[in-house]
Design a protein around this nucleic acid. Structure first.
Lengths: 214, 214
DNA sequence: TAGATTGTTAATCGATTAACAATC
DNA sequence: TAGATTGTTAATCGATTAACAATC
């Protein structure tokens, strides 16, 4: 165990993948797995897996490998999957609605509790289990329900104002689908960006530059 | 110039960001920028920017810096933004519809030309400019329109079959929103994965582990 | 020309891989 | 006990940063 150290970002970003693959192994009815076999399945090296896991502690057993159920639970706990942070979604346009309906928040550590939009025409419209609230009700709602995080599905130009208001409501963690760069203005915020445009352009690059190598 | 070499993956993944920031600088009415000033804005080092760009050629001028319009165009060309690859979307559920309507494909190198779904109840429903087609019409459609890429917004368990059919239609590039691991079965496919669940869990980790450091 | 800033080489840093002793 | 496989240290590799000569 050396959990006192700082965990490299790369390791952290692999944790959800480990969690996901271990879940799949459980579905296959497997009980235990060696770093070698897991590496084969995940396309990593066995060394890397052992190094990664040992940032958090010794979860395996020499001569045996890793107990899948246990390891998955432990990784889940490290991520905090069982904390069920309250999260609200801001911006109930196409993308916002899809995110609200598509994601299984409860399995990923969150509990979606409300949708907000600044467009009055959307107020009251039901999306899944939620009626869209007007953004002006944010403060009141947050005082009562104290959400931890917010999902931003808003246009970039609204980014700063909206984020400021959320931070005023003691929300400090953001899942950001907009191009607005939260950390520039709010360096202490916890931010996870999803830049779909960038991802699409990366695909474009890879297509463009595969054609040139015949 | 040393464009003969292989470009590191990290460099490629930064290209869309460069492109995006340069666009913002243009919007601000700027004409030229030094690697130093750009590094300040993007939160990188000037060294890294110069290194990155020099993988593709010398775009700057000593004593002057970089012409923003030119540099942006050149990066756009490297990505292939002006190739407008035909792309089809498979799976017109919440997420698929949102992607179809939300993304500005034309500005990212693609031209969305059709939506498919295997649910007959959805056939004919209009999403933006498109009527959803039944998946059984895929082959016919592809023969006529020869799409280059497909966006997968389908459940993972349908992944293999759907991908096989798409590959049979000469589609070899995938923007994959599902958990299905395309490269396992089709190692030659060009794949860009978007794992929203993993991203959300990374946010969860960062919240969980910020609380513990008071 | 002098000043600024690139392109590029060298140094550093961090992450991945390999190796192996510890141990179940 | 013998075999398997971990946890961990050491070696390698690659990416980032620093430095500086080239040059606009």
């Amino acid at each position: 165990m050396k959990s006192n150290n700082i965990i490299p970002k790369n390791v952290i970003s692999r944790l959800p993948r480990y969690y996901r693959f271990l879940g799949m192994l459980l579905d296959e009815g497997m009980e235990r797995i060696s770093s070698n076999e897991l590496s084969r399945r995940m396309g990593l090296t066995a060394s890397q897996i052992r190094q990664d896991l040992n940032h958090f502690g010794g979860f395996g057993q020499q001569g045996y490998g890793y107990n899948i159920t246990q390891l998955r639970e432990q990784i889940g706990h490290i991520i905090g999957i069982d904390n069920y942070y309250n999260v609200i979604l801001i911006g109930a346009g196409n993308l916002g609605r899809a995110i609200a309906q598509h994601l299984n928040f409860q399995k990923r550590g969150f509990n979606l509790i409300a949708l907000f939009d600044s467009d009055e025409k959307l107020t009251g419209i039901r999306i899944g289990n939620f009626a869209i609230r007007h953004f002006s009700q944010l403060e009141e709602f947050c005082e009562e329900h104290k959400p931890t995080a917010a999902i931003l599905c808003i246009p970039s130009n609204a980014g700063k104002d909206v984020t400021q208001k959320l931070i005023d409501c003691n929300i400090n963690a953001f899942w950001n689908f907009s191009h607005y760069n939260i950390s520039d203005d709010f360096p202490d915020a916890i931010v996870e960006n999803v830049h779909l445009n960038d991802s699409l352009m990366t695909l474009c690059y890879n297509i463009t530059n595969s054609e040139e190598t015949p």
